[in-house]
Simulated assay, not measured.
Amino acid sequence: MIDDFAKDYLHTDLREIRDTVLRKLDGLSEYDVRRPLTSTGTNLLGLVKHLAVAESRYFGEVFGRPSPEPVPRWDDLDRRGTDMWATEHETREEVVDRYRRVWAHSDATIAALAVDSPGHVPWWPRPDVVLFTVLVHVLTETNRHAGHADVLREQLDGEVDAARRDAAFWADRRAEVERAARAADRRHGS
């Protein structure tokens, strides 16, 4: 009974966070979803593309259920990192649609397998896993990148989901945090 509960709980959370990631693209121009916003080139559409590749691997080949989507081999060092950004030839719609198709394949894998079904992750130090382990890992990874997407979106246009507060609230909060940082610097020195 706990196995079904755990699987359903994690799967529900994964579905919700996937939607959250895609909402970060809403209302932005092609340039804004693609432009590098960190020194490493991190961008919103690249996060979506990366998550599609990761899910394809984890809920596909790890469980002997290869994704119908083409996925670069995990050990192809020449391709490493190319899933973190979209080329000018890849449309936003293609990247988003690919991610949604990957969801369908991942969801089918999750539904078909028991939470203790064995899998093999050759790029992990302890490669023998079960579905539960992979569900936790993918949920964690997706949440991590959703956090990145939150920060990137806020950098672009100030959009935040947190409690749907208005701009004045966030301006006051930022000023309060700035005051505390300056006071701590004076008090503790750097």
Rank of each mutant, 00 (worst) to 15 (best):
A181L: 13
P118I: 09
L139H: 03
V177Q: 00
D185C: 07
V134N: 05
A184M: 03
V151C: 10
R174F: 12
W123S: 11
R187H: 15
A183D: 14
V136Q: 01
A183Q: 14
V160N: 06
D166P: 00
W124D: 15
R187G: 13
R186L: 07
E178Q: 09
A184H: 00
V121P: 03
G147N: 04
A175I: 04
F169A: 03
A183E: 15
R126Q: 14
P125F: 08
A168C: 06
W123A: 14
R174L: 12
A163I: 09
H188Y: 03
S117M: 01
V138F: 01
D185H: 12
S117Y: 00
D128F: 07
V138I: 10
V136T: 07
A146I: 06
E159R: 15
L152A: 01
R165S: 01
E141A: 09
V130H: 00
P118R: 13
G147K: 05
D185G: 13
P118T: 12
G158C: 12
V136Y: 04
V177R: 06
D157V: 06
W123D: 13
R186Y: 07
R173G: 06
E176W: 13
T142W: 01
G147I: 09
H145W: 06
R165T: 01
W124E: 14
A149N: 08
R144M: 13
R153K: 07
R187V: 11
H145Y: 10
Q155P: 03
T142M: 05
V177L: 01
V138D: 05
A167Q: 15
V151G: 12
S117D: 00
D157R: 05
H137Y: 11
L156M: 06
L131N: 03
L135F: 07
R144L: 12
E178S: 08
V177C: 06
L152Q: 01
V129H: 02
V177F: 05
D128K: 04
D128L: 08
F132R: 09
L135S: 04
S117H: 06
L131R: 01
P122T: 04
E176N: 13
T140M: 13
E178C: 03
H145T: 11
A183S: 15
P125D: 15
H148P: 09
F169K: 00
L135W: 06
R164N: 13
H120W: 11
E178D: 10
A171H: 08
V121T: 14
L139G: 00
D161C: 15
N143K: 10
E154F: 03
G147Q: 05
D157C: 01
A163R: 10
L156R: 02
R179Y: 12
A162E: 04
L156T: 07
G158P: 07
D150I: 04
V129W: 02
V134Q: 02
R144Y: 14
W123I: 12
D150E: 08
V177E: 05
A171K: 07
L131A: 02
V177Y: 06
V138T: 04
T140F: 13
E176V: 11
L135P: 06
P125I: 14
G158N: 11
R173P: 00
R165H: 02
A149D: 05
A146W: 02
H120M: 12
Q155G: 13
L135M: 08
A183P: 08
A181P: 00
A167Y: 10
P118Q: 12
T140N: 15
V136F: 02
E154M: 03
P122F: 09
D172W: 13
V177D: 07
V138G: 04
R153S: 05
G147M: 04
